[in-house]
Design a protein around this nucleic acid. Structure first.
Lengths: 182, 182
DNA sequence: TCCTGCTATGCAACTTGTTGCATAGCAACT
DNA sequence: AGTTGCTATGCAACAAGTTGCATAGCAGGA
């Protein structure tokens, strides 16, 4: 499984608590790996038991204490071993595409509902695209002056940007097709 | 869950056995929904018990008998209800993106391995793109003369094609970035 | 002749991922 | 004073997905 590895990479980039990791997964990392806070907490405990990461209790004022994790050497070695092993092609679960093909077997009112649904997704993807673009301007203002870590983060972000662009264009194609069908 | 719905759509387009469904999921449907034969057989039995689909035993020569399923009316109604409910944005599990960001924390030999891995994925995506394009030429030679079902299948296929094009271009970007990093 | 591979289905065990709920203090708004 | 919302973590139960193995007949090549 690779949630462990995604967490390791995130902790190597920046130590953090389970809660902080969960919000990172909701934002940037969520683009290529989704996880709920439950999953993250469970895997964090296992990783700590395996010695892959180390935890430090941090007391806070006005809010509960937190456990800040950072990657330990065995974890870094495990990541390195995983990097050398081939991985499978990405898996996708694209409900909307299933719906689009399914719309052929529904009546016209179902098709009208689908238009609204596609428009909703289009708005969400457009918003995400703009968030990525804003993040790019903020974090990578000078693409010529990046170290290795930043350059790799940037190329992954560019992947997200291109994915969102392509998706918005495709959803426009879907809307045009649905429009032609009446 | 939506595997049920993906199966319903596939059976509405064309009745088939569990084995046939599994190979469809390995080919066209696998683009937006992956499933192993185990999952498919298990869900088919549940769907049959729920009356969503009907099975017919078909004897064959030279090979085992098969159970050919087709969508029943309650299944079509369940699909229709699902089409009217909003769905979540697609979820992605993109190991390769995790690896790319993880490569910042590995030594140069790990980075060399990553180049090979990216090239492997690039070849796979290129092959898939060409398969999709060949399928498009075969199944949709005249895009102006399609019924609703075909038009919807075609627009989903175009989504797959654009996704593969975008991915190949992005992997080239990744390779160029890795090359620049030495 | 043996081995591989394809069609065709399935059990059992295991790992992952999801959902609902619970706690708890504080801030900000109503 | 009450409600909502954020930080912060977690249990328990359930649903979904994966992996390894098994069966079985036939085709085709080494």
């Amino acid at each position: 499984m690779a949630l462990e590895h995604a967490i390791l990479v995130s902790l190597l980039e920046q130590p953090g608590s389970g809660y902080e990791l969960a919000s990172r997964f909701d934002r940037s990392i969520g683009r290529f790996w989704t996880a709920t806070h439950q999953q993250i907490y469970r895997v964090l405990r296992r990783m700590e038991a395996d010695g892959w990461i180390a935890a430090e209790e941090v007391a806070q004022e006005g809010r509960p204490d937190k456990r800040v994790y950072s990657a330990a050497e065995p974890g870094r070695r495990a990541l390195s071993a995983w990097l050398r092993a081939p991985v499978e092609p990405e898996t996708v679960r694209h409900d909307l595409a299933v719906k689009i093909r399914g719309a052929a077997f529904d009546d016209p009112s179902g098709r009208a509902g689908l238009v609204a649904e596609v428009e909703r997704h289009r708005a969400a993807h457009t918003a995400l695209l703009h968030r990525y673009l804003a993040g790019e301007r903020r974090d990578f203002p000078d693409p010529a002056a990046l170290d290795a870590q930043q350059a790799l983060q940037h190329v992954v972000l560019r992947g997200g940007i291109e994915y969102e662009r392509m998706t918005v264009a495709w959803l426009d194609d879907v809307l045009a097709t649905l429009h032609r069908l009446g």
